[in-house]
Amino acid sequence: MRAYITVMGKDKVGIIAAVANTLSDCKINIEEINQTILQGTFTMIMAVDTKESSLSIEEINTELTKCGSALGVEIAIRHEDIFNAMHQI
């Protein structure tokens, strides 16, 4: 399954590393990363492929939420279909 992970919050050292480590532990492949500071907020979007992972999207979400809590940022994973549905005709 292809999905997008969004990470938003206050910038600090190690966010990308921590998220990448969590994804690596879950056997999720990162295909693209786009990171910027939008209106003072750290904003990262990752396109990922979960096909190697044995975890369900709910379980992946739980792992990412744990990672986000430790970092003080909001992390969410969503199936790509919701973005395609809303923004592509």
């Binding site: 979007i45 919701i82 973005f83």
Partner: peptide, 16 residues
């Protein structure tokens, strides 16, 4: 990748 502004828009529509 879908335009990052579109992705952020969706996230904000839902979250905020």
């Amino acid at each position: 990748m879908i335009n990052q502004h579109d992705i952020i828009e969706t996230v904000k529509m839902i979250g905020e």
